[in-house]
Design a protein around this nucleic acid. Structure first.
Lengths: 202, 202, 202, 202
DNA sequence: CATGAATGAGTTTTCATTCAT
DNA sequence: AATGAATGAAAACTCATTCAT
């Protein structure tokens, strides 16, 4: 059936639109994104956009969502047989380095107050760990640490939220301040992990 | 002299413009601010803005600057005779609560990547404490703590940067996620301070 | 193909825009031209201009260029077998009458001090005849006249420049003073050519 | 009486306004002149203009008129006892060099098609010499030349118009093309006068 | 006499969106 | 499916002019 080929072509063009939009956002900021700029870059005409997306906002939503998925994918599955503190250390580092490779998506997504985005990124509410897989895993690791006597007893979710937002803060500043050297970056990350883990030890 | 009254009136209107602009930013985001919206809200005509400010950017700069000053003023001079850990605890809390009362300014200012703003807000570079008074005071407190044997020896500036960015992360999330209850907020702040301080103890 | 028809329609509208712009310039002067005035006259909306031209300056450039080309085309290829003095007489008359039919273009173009326009219209520099075909042809005619003994020996380019600017002066005044009768116009032109040609005879 | 002093002060300020306006026109072109720019330069406030002039156009008219008077004053009284051809030569040169020192006024005035200005500058109509002193003097000189047998018999006014417009053309081009060397300028002027005078000799 | 606040209409340009083809 | 013409509203900004003070 050409149905399949058609659908595939359709997907290709949606992809192209999103990629061009993302390029423009990366280059000139989200405030400068316009339908015309997208279609100029694609060498298509403006009208075509509305075959594939229902509005400009629709495009932005898609980009945000993709960014979110990429960020999620950063939270890699961690091999077991590690001590809880090592688990935290490694998964945080994984997350940070991965986020730094999706810089603009991360900034757009993780610094956004838009409701549609917050629905995916909020973590401070009580019971947040029920909705956020990453937070749940962090809780799980902390619980393990408490069980085996490495970490002090505590409100596990609250602790996870605090660890996560501390790391988030460092990451955000690393994103925002673009000229930090690789070495300083590493020193900051390591020092933060040292403090955070020491802070929850028994 | 009416000179005085006139100048006063001038100041009043500048203030009114800035306040309206800030309201709009609070409500719809900075990207949605426009001269027309400001003057509609004031029930003035658009052109008049340019009597008081030389450009839209000028208005934004003023708002940013005021926000910055308000945030700085939050870092209140702390009464002495406190132990270093109490000092950290109290000054961080001061800062957080003050920032939360200037919400939109803080967000606009502290989440900005604009160079002109970063010139005032960056803290991760090496030697940043030489440029940032708040960071310098934090360093000073940590040093004190090390001297009297409360805190473990460490790279003081690096530690200050880490503490600051951890608190920044929690604060940023509190700003971004607007619906956190007062109690949850307090629990998060206290828990974070507990962890951070425990993390640097000897 | 409708491709052709579409392109044709496109050209028509570009033409319409230029014509309206020219009308406005004719009526109210170039300083009074505005995008709005053009589109009002066309009964279109202002934005559409930017489909056809990239800026107001672009429109002005096109008008200027067209004017220039029309003026150039006026310097018709002159049939040979004429005596040098007749050549000068006829080609100057051709130029004058043609310029008078493209009045506004000529004025806009030939009275302009704008660098981009001067690049095409300057004639007083030394070696100008190398860049200006019309001047070069005038030089050639004068040289011929000298060779066959009609004209006195002289600095040929300088003479061409002087003849050209004299005719330019009369033409400019005829353009500027709009109410000169046809008969007076002809008398002035003939008298000027008499004087100029007598002035370079041997 | 303070009446006198007041009137004098009044004149001073009118003068200041006109001078500032002229400076702006010289620097940025007439299209860029604005009331605000004038008063900024004077360090006065915008409203004041309307105490001294009834409109912006009024200012422009004054500037034009002053320019005209300066140009007129260029047509210096010429000492007698010169041969007619020397008279023409010297008075034209006087006019040209003087005009070149009032460059911007001359351009604004002598290249203008505005009716109010044309009322002072038109010269091509029949009987123009009755209204234009400069043209009348030129006619007079030509008549003298005819009487003493230097110049050929001719329609005197027509000849004067042609001479004048020829010189006008060279002068206009010299004004418009700003980068002509002094030497080339002199050569052009001398050559033109040679041709024109030879063109009217008996 | 002089100020400076205020207006309202103007400027060029950009934009998201629609729609006939 | 795709084009590109067209719109109408919006953007930032400038201006001549008026007028209460």
């Amino acid at each position: 059936m050409s149905n399949t080929r058609q659908r595939q072509r359709n997907e290709e063009i949606k992809r192209k639109i999103l990629d061009c939009a993302r390029e423009i956002i990366d280059e000139d900021g989200v405030g400068s994104l316009s339908i015309r700029k997208i279609t100029n870059r694609m060498e298509y005409s403006p009208g075509i956009i509305y075959h594939y997306f229902k509005s400009k906002q629709d495009i932005l939503d898609c980009i945000m969502l993709e960014g979110y998925e990429r960020i999620l994918s950063a939270i890699a599955p961690i091999t077991d047989d590690l001590s809880p503190d090592e688990m935290i250390r490694i998964s945080f580092k994984n997350y940070i380095f991965s986020a730094l490779t999706w810089r603009s998506e991360w900034k757009a997504f993780m610094l956004s107050s838009a409701d549609t985005i917050l629905a995916h990124t909020s973590i401070l509410e009580e019971k947040s760990s029920e909705k956020r897989r990453a937070l749940a895993e962090l809780c799980h690791t902390i619980e393990n640490g408490i069980e085996i006597g490495t970490f002090a007893t505590c409100d596990v979710e609250l602790t996870a939220q605090v660890l996560w937002s501390a790391m988030y803060g460092l990451l955000a500043r690393l994103m925002i301040e673009e000229n930090i050297t690789q070495m300083q970056q590493n020193k900051l990350i390591d020092r933060q992990l040292d403090i955070l883990i020491k802070g929850i030890l028994r």
